[in-house]
Amino acid sequence: MTQLPRGRPRSEATRLAVLTATAELIAETGYDRVTIEAIAARAGCGKQTIYRWWSSKSLIVADAVIDGHLRLPEHGVPDTGDLGADLRDWVTEAAASVRIPEHRALIRALAAAASETEAESLRLSEHLTAPHYGALMRRLRAGQARGQLSPEANLDAIADALLGSTLFRVLAGFPPAAHPSAIVDLLLGAGPGGRSG
């Protein structure tokens, strides 16, 4: 939960009403069109109450995602035994997801929330980023153990590049890559269109 300022304690019923209202309004109109005024009206509370507890709309969205009122699409890394094919499928699915404007807007909102404070960044990392990163690292380690990656391969760098290549395009406002799986070929050492075992 976002760190609260000193003052009147937060009502749990009002907090839940705000998060529910935010999720409903985003589903109805999209993140970019949602305003604090609209959230307050839907939640039945004053705008001042919201600003007392959250300093920005993106922080409300972060709480709504962490509490399960809003859900980002989840893309688990498959394990068919073929690391290259699994990663290509994974990045292609992720690229398709971020073509959806609502998903792109939520990712940008969460990035904005993470930039508010170090504590918020750590909280979002713990609940959202770290689990995805951990799953990707486990899949890379499994591939390395099967001899599909060099024992000297820098798995952290590969994971950073796979996740970062998608997020960068979203945050920079670029369209998703036309051929998202090409990054896998580069990272695993295959030539264009090639397959790494």
Rank of each mutant, 00 (worst) to 15 (best):
P151K: 02
V91N: 04
L149K: 01
Q48P: 11
S58F: 06
R15W: 12
A112Q: 14
D32L: 13
E118N: 11
E152Q: 15
E28N: 12
Q144D: 00
R6W: 14
A182F: 08
S97Y: 09
R71S: 14
A41V: 05
R52L: 13
G197Y: 13
H132S: 14
T49S: 14
L4F: 09
G46W: 00
A21H: 04
V65S: 06
S150V: 02
D79M: 00
P5V: 09
V184G: 00
V77A: 03
A142I: 05
H127P: 06
A40G: 09
L70I: 14
G143I: 00
G194C: 03
L171T: 03
G68D: 02
H179L: 12
I39Y: 01
P78T: 05
V34F: 09
E28H: 12
V170T: 07
G194Q: 01
L106G: 08
A17L: 07
L72D: 04
H127K: 09
A111K: 08
P176W: 10
R108G: 02
A43L: 11
E74L: 13
G143N: 05
A96G: 14
T92P: 05
A94I: 15
T129E: 15
D89V: 09
E37N: 11
L87D: 06
E116K: 07
L4Q: 15
R146P: 11
L87S: 00
A135R: 15
A43E: 05
A142H: 08
D32W: 14
A41R: 14
P5A: 13
P73W: 02
I60D: 00
H132N: 12
L83R: 00
V170K: 04
S150I: 00
A94D: 09
R146T: 08
L188R: 04
A157I: 04
A111N: 10
T49H: 13
L163F: 12
L188D: 02
T166R: 15
L155S: 02
L72E: 05
G194I: 07
A182I: 06
T117F: 08
A105N: 00
R99S: 07
R104T: 14
T129I: 08
T129D: 15
D79L: 06
G68Y: 06
P101N: 07
R99M: 01
R10F: 13
L87C: 01
A178M: 11
R88P: 03
G173S: 07
L163M: 13
V34H: 01
P151Q: 05
A62E: 08
I50N: 07
G30P: 00
P176C: 04
P180E: 05
H132A: 15
E102D: 09
L128P: 04
I39S: 02
I66S: 08
T129N: 14
A64K: 07
Q148Y: 12
R169A: 07
H179G: 09
A43M: 09
W53P: 10
S196I: 03
H132E: 13
I107Y: 10
T80R: 00
I39T: 01
D82N: 04
L72T: 04
L70H: 08
A145M: 11
T14I: 13
L106S: 05
D63V: 03
S58M: 07
R146D: 09
C45K: 02
A145V: 06
L136S: 10
V61C: 03
H127T: 07
E120H: 08
R104A: 15
Y133K: 13
T92D: 13
H179D: 15
T35K: 08
A23F: 10
S150G: 10
